[in-house]
Computed example of a mutant assay.
Amino acid sequence: MQWEGISEFVNVAENESFTLAAKKMQISTAQVSRQVSALEKRLNIKLFYRTTRKVSLTDEGRVFYHHCRSVLDGLVAAERAVTNLQSKPQGKIKLTAPVTYGEKQILPLLNNFMKQYADVEVTAYLSNLKIDLVEEGYDLAIRLGKLSDSSMMAKKLAERTNYVCASPAYLNTYGTAHSIAELNKHSCLLGTLDYWHFKEAGKEKNVRVTGKLRYNSGYGLTDAALKGLGIVQLPDYYVEQHIRSGKLVSLLDNYRANDEGIWAVYPQNRHLSPKIRLLVDYLAEHLV
């Protein structure tokens, strides 16, 4: 029997909600729904009654739930027993992460992790390219923002906030942008994209911006903003410390887009070994 979808099914049954189940499992609601639907199709039975207000088990779903709950409890006990045997995780871990975020956030935590678990060997490859984890033999990847690859499993580690900001010197000279529409009157410091992300009237919105400067470096854009060359949109780990110190001023806060997820992604058919699960949990605990 295939095991895909069992954990998602049990969590939906216990929370009576796909959304709450996804939050508890730290995966997307769409992923939970997809797994449960595939499970129903495989079993050829309807497990839930779904309405806009409530999710409840069918008679068949109730019977199936009690069996699955017992099985999952047994698996937890089995994993705990194996983990206890290997109290010191050991072996190789191969992961990939985006270059700047990897350098600033992930690698220092990996160093701390390896100090704590001396028998673990880590290979980390930093790249902004989307790497095929299965083909290249990676255990996991750290990815930022919206996930597009539905063939992968994912656990949310943290979130990041994108700020629009500029230096006091720039604002004193050119004035403050009070609305998204006013950005076209300002010098915008561009990254790899021609647009910035906002939220207006409850809806996400991409706004095209222009400027005389374009870098594929968050550090370079931060420095340009600090030196008064224009307005920039960057994640919190570039600019938050400068906003706190007053060297940069946060703008258009009412239009700020929703925080974006920071994810640990791994192949769907690859169960996490204790050492990988320990690393993922460690990152989730220490990333801020």
Rank of each mutant, 00 (worst) to 15 (best):
residue 260 E to G: 05
residue 246 G to E: 09
residue 139 D to M: 01
residue 88 K to H: 13
residue 226 L to E: 06
residue 12 V to L: 07
residue 159 E to S: 14
residue 88 K to I: 15
residue 101 Y to T: 08
residue 168 P to W: 01
residue 165 C to T: 03
residue 10 V to K: 07
residue 19 T to C: 02
residue 11 N to C: 12
residue 271 H to Q: 12
residue 66 H to Q: 14
residue 173 T to A: 15
residue 167 S to W: 01
residue 288 V to E: 15
residue 26 Q to E: 14
residue 287 L to V: 05
residue 22 A to S: 10
residue 1 M to C: 09
residue 54 K to D: 13
residue 39 L to D: 13
residue 91 G to K: 06
residue 93 I to A: 06
residue 48 F to M: 07
residue 143 R to C: 02
residue 105 Q to H: 06
residue 37 S to Q: 09
residue 55 V to K: 11
residue 13 A to Y: 04
residue 226 L to A: 09
residue 153 M to C: 14
residue 161 T to W: 00
residue 241 Q to D: 10
residue 268 Q to L: 08
residue 21 A to C: 10
residue 271 H to P: 11
residue 11 N to I: 00
residue 163 Y to R: 05
residue 286 H to N: 15
residue 23 K to H: 12
residue 43 L to K: 13
residue 274 P to A: 02
residue 87 S to C: 08
residue 56 S to C: 02
residue 191 G to F: 01
residue 54 K to P: 03
residue 215 Y to C: 08
residue 109 L to C: 10
residue 241 Q to S: 10
residue 183 L to P: 10
residue 128 N to K: 02
residue 217 S to W: 00
residue 258 N to H: 07
residue 133 L to V: 03
residue 43 L to P: 09
residue 104 K to T: 12
residue 197 H to K: 11
residue 211 G to V: 00
residue 74 G to Y: 02
residue 221 L to W: 05
residue 164 V to P: 12
residue 204 E to Y: 02
residue 200 E to A: 02
residue 71 V to D: 11
residue 125 Y to V: 15
residue 261 G to R: 03
residue 272 L to F: 06
residue 194 D to M: 00
residue 84 N to S: 12
residue 231 I to N: 11
residue 242 H to D: 13
residue 148 S to Q: 10
residue 129 L to Q: 15
residue 42 R to K: 14
residue 156 K to T: 11
residue 210 T to S: 14
residue 186 H to T: 01
residue 187 S to W: 02
residue 195 Y to W: 09
residue 168 P to L: 00
residue 118 A to I: 13
residue 43 L to M: 13
residue 244 R to D: 11
residue 243 I to H: 05
residue 116 Q to E: 15
residue 13 A to K: 05
residue 10 V to F: 05
residue 47 L to R: 07
residue 141 A to N: 06
residue 91 G to S: 08
residue 29 T to H: 11
residue 90 Q to K: 12
residue 178 H to L: 04
residue 79 E to N: 11
residue 178 H to M: 05
residue 131 I to C: 03
residue 88 K to D: 15
residue 235 P to L: 00
residue 246 G to H: 08
residue 72 L to T: 01
residue 145 G to Y: 06
residue 176 T to C: 02
residue 280 V to N: 07
residue 61 G to E: 07
residue 99 V to K: 14
residue 170 Y to S: 08
residue 273 S to N: 06
residue 27 I to D: 09
residue 178 H to W: 00
residue 129 L to P: 01
residue 126 L to E: 12
residue 94 K to Y: 03
residue 205 K to Q: 14
residue 14 E to Y: 01
residue 115 K to Y: 01
residue 214 R to Y: 01
residue 282 Y to I: 04
residue 5 G to C: 05
residue 90 Q to F: 06
residue 199 K to H: 04
residue 189 L to K: 11
residue 194 D to E: 08
residue 256 R to C: 02
residue 77 A to V: 10
residue 26 Q to V: 04
residue 139 D to P: 04
residue 258 N to P: 06
residue 167 S to D: 06
residue 68 C to I: 01
residue 278 L to W: 03
residue 152 M to Y: 15
residue 266 Y to R: 06
residue 251 L to H: 11
residue 105 Q to K: 14
residue 69 R to N: 13
residue 254 N to W: 00
residue 255 Y to C: 05
residue 285 E to T: 13
residue 254 N to T: 10
residue 52 T to W: 07
residue 264 A to E: 08
residue 233 Q to K: 12
residue 227 K to Y: 09
residue 151 S to Q: 12
residue 78 A to E: 14
residue 99 V to S: 10
residue 239 V to S: 10
residue 79 E to V: 05
residue 140 L to T: 12
residue 155 K to H: 10
residue 55 V to E: 13
residue 211 G to A: 03
residue 66 H to A: 12
residue 213 L to E: 11
residue 239 V to A: 09
